[in-house]
Amino acid sequence: MPKLLPIIEFLEHGVKKPIWDCKMCGQCVLHSTGMTCPMTCPKTLRNGPCGGVREDGHCEVKPEMPCIWVKAYERKDSLPLPQSWRNHYNDLRPPVDNQLKGTSSWLNLITKRDQQTPAGWSAENATHESQ
């Protein structure tokens, strides 16, 4: 398997780079974002657009580029995607695990490595009420 790793990573990048401008974050969420990669957002926002989207739906940082979240919102319904993928559109995606950069998200999906989050993220305290 270790010998295969670079080959799988090479293959994944070879497929995803030309189509989605893949950044090899190693924790792919394309399926839930209308097949539009949030890592191509100049602010790498994985949970929706910033407040700087222009009136024409283009990016604050790169005016020539359509906002990836405007595209994602349209594509999640316009593309023939499974309903289960669409249902994940508004999921709260955890912070990127920077240790996975450059690794194959296909392998990380199979091994569930891409689902590992810091203990404080998954703890049942975000809904904690004290009032």
Binding site: N47, L92, A119, G120, W121, A123, N125
Partner: peptide, 21 residues
């Protein structure tokens, strides 16, 4: 992190933990 993630991290602090747990 993005704003939604930062909100959850603040909520984690409110619950007495850092993001690491």
């Amino acid at each position: 992190v993005d704003s939604a993630q930062a909100i959850k991290i603040a909520a984690t602090l409110r619950g007495g933990r850092y993001l690491s747990g």
